[in-house]
Each structure stands twice: as structure tokens, then as C-alpha cells.
């Protein structure tokens, strides 16, 4: 279509989807097809729609999303590896009115930061943990993560993860759901438009709980891809999620607030 036709077409139409203004107007550094960009966007859309930008504080992790503050246009603290939840506790306890979320990968949250994660949830500290689980250490070059599936090849499990030698993949969301401090725990994905809609709803719901001052920690796990680390095309990686990964990491709510249970 020529530019002219395009303009005429648009004139008669309404804009139904645009990039949220809470994302910086800058291209991200993530690899083609990486789910980080989608999740960043969903969180910022939720913050914008809920109108809480002026009291939102994000905690960036160590890993691929260490520079999240270059994309998320909200006040952000970059925490030490694994310590994002401790950092969030510090803020939330002194300033309970702030809306706080951490954004952490699986190496950050489920390996080096396991202690901080468990105890923050056990205290029921009222913030949101957005947990990106792609079963690999992307930033450092594709090493095995605690969440790596049995048999999966990574740069430190070159023959596939041998569970006798390297332990088993951790379903940390299910572990955390056992703690009374956990308020809402769900596992989502962003590998299709349908999944993205659901994930957005979950993130928004979790933030709403925090805004309402509901008791406990919320965790939205997003089982995502790592095309570079998995050595797949974006399309293959999304298909691999459907075919293999979701069998182990089953999508859906793991713990919901008492009233909603039925």
C-alpha cells in the first residue's frame, strides 16, 4: 500500500492498540523473539491502566533484564543478584503505600536468590514478583539453570541435564504456594496472543491486589523462551514451549486468594 492510501485508511479508523507511554521510546537490547520485551510491556500497560505510575517502584535483577530501567519508565532500583525481593521488602516495609514489583529471572530468583525469595513470600510481604522462567542463564551464555528441564542441553550440561548429577528442575511456584504468606501465585506464558492476554490479566490482577492492600505476596511466573540460549528460531522456541516445557511447567493459577476459590 502506498503512503497516501495508508493515511486515508487510517483516517477513517480508530487506534485500538498502541505502545504504552510507560515504556521508554527506545529499542530494547533483547535478542529477536525474546519474551522479556513482551512482559516488560505488559507490566507497564498494567501500571498505566491502574494509574499508579506515581508510586510504582520496580526492582531490576541481575541477568538479561538487568537494564530493565532503560525500558520501564518508572522509578527503578537495580538489585544485587538474587536480592531483588529483599530490596523490595526494604522499600515496602518503610513505604507501604508504594506499589513495588520485582522482575527476576530463574537464575536470580530460583538459584542464588532462593533464600530471599522464600522468606519474602513467607513473611507475606505485599509486593509482586514477576518471575521469568526460561530454564537457562541467558546473559552469561546459556548455562544450566535450576529450572532447566531434565535432558535439556545447555553450555554446562552439554550432554543434557542428568538429574543424578545435576539435580532436578525446580517448580518454585508450587513450592512457594505452600507458604501461608503467598496470596496469589500463577504461571503464565507469552508465546501466543491468547497467552499474552491471559498473562496481562494475571499481572494486572496481582497489582490490583497490592493496590487494595490485600495480604500477601503475589507471584506471576512467566514461562518464557530463550531462542539464543536454546539455539532455536523464535518460532521453534515458542513451539518447544507448547510441545515440551508446559508439560512440566503447567500453566494456570497455582494459588488464588481464598474468596476466589471454588
Amino acid at each position: 500500500m502506498s503512503e497516501k492510501i495508508k493515511d486515508n485508511v487510517i483516517e477513517s479508523m480508530k487506534e485500538v492498540w498502541e505502545r504504552t507511554k510507560l515504556l521508554h521510546d527506545a529499542p530494547n537490547h533483547y535478542c529477536p523473539g525474546c519474551g522479556h520485551g513482551v512482559v516488560h510491556r505488559l507490566i507497564m500497560e498494567a501500571v498505566e491502566e491502574l494509574g499508579v505510575m506515581d508510586r510504582t517502584i520496580a526492582i531490576a535483577p541481575v541477568g538479561c533484564s538487568v537494564l530493565a530501567y532503560n525500558y520501564l519508565n518508572v522509578d527503578t532500583q537495580q538489585a544485587a543478584h538474587g536480592r531483588a525481593t529483599a530490596c523490595a521488602t526494604g522499600i515496602k516495609r518503610v513505604f507501604p503505600d508504594k506499589i513495588v514489583f520485582t522482575y527476576q529471572g530463574d537464575g536470580d530468583l530460583a538459584a542464588i536468590g532462593t533464600g530471599e525469595t522464600i522468606h519474602a513470600v513467607n513473611r507475606g510481604d505485599k509486593f509482586l514478583i514477576v518471575f521469568i522462567n526460561n530454564g537457562i542463564y541467558g546473559m552469561t551464555g546459556g548455562q544450566m539453570a535450576p529450572t532447566t528441564l531434565e535432558g535439556a542441553k545447555t553450555s554446562t550440561s552439554p550432554d543434557g541435564r542428568d538429574v543424578d548429577l545435576m539435580g532436578h528442575a525446580i517448580r518454585i511456584a508450587e513450592m512457594l504456594a505452600l507458604l501461608p504468606g503467598a496470596y496469589y501465585i500463577t504461571r503464565q506464558a507469552v508465546n501466543s496472543a491468547k497467552a499474552v492476554r491471559k498473562a496481562k490479566k494475571a499481572i494486572k490482577k496481582a497489582l490490583q491486589y497490592q493496590i487494595d492492600g490485600k495480604g500477601g505476596t503475589c507471584l506471576v511466573e512467566v514461562v518464557s523462551n530463550c531462542p539464543s540460549g536454546w539455539k532455536m528460531t523464535p518460532e521453534e522456541s515458542n513451539k518447544y514451549l507448547d510441545d515440551e516445557v508446559f508439560d512440566f511447567y503447567q500453566l494456570g493459577d497455582i494459588k488464588v486468594p481464598p474468596k476466589e476459590e471454588k
Binding site: Q77, A86, A88, G90, I91, R93, V94, E116, R123
Partner: peptide
Amino acid sequence: GGAFVQAESEIASINMVYGAAGAGARV
């Protein structure tokens, strides 16, 4: 009027300090 948390470790303590100090509190 202050917030007290007995953390799970000194590592958590210092990172709670990081968070709260970063939000402008005297901690």
C-alpha cells in the same frame, strides 16, 4: 513509627537497607 524486620540473613538485611535507602528512608 519505624519498620523492623528480622531478616533471614545478613545478606538479606543489607539488601533491605539498599532498597529502603534507595527509596529515601533513614535506615
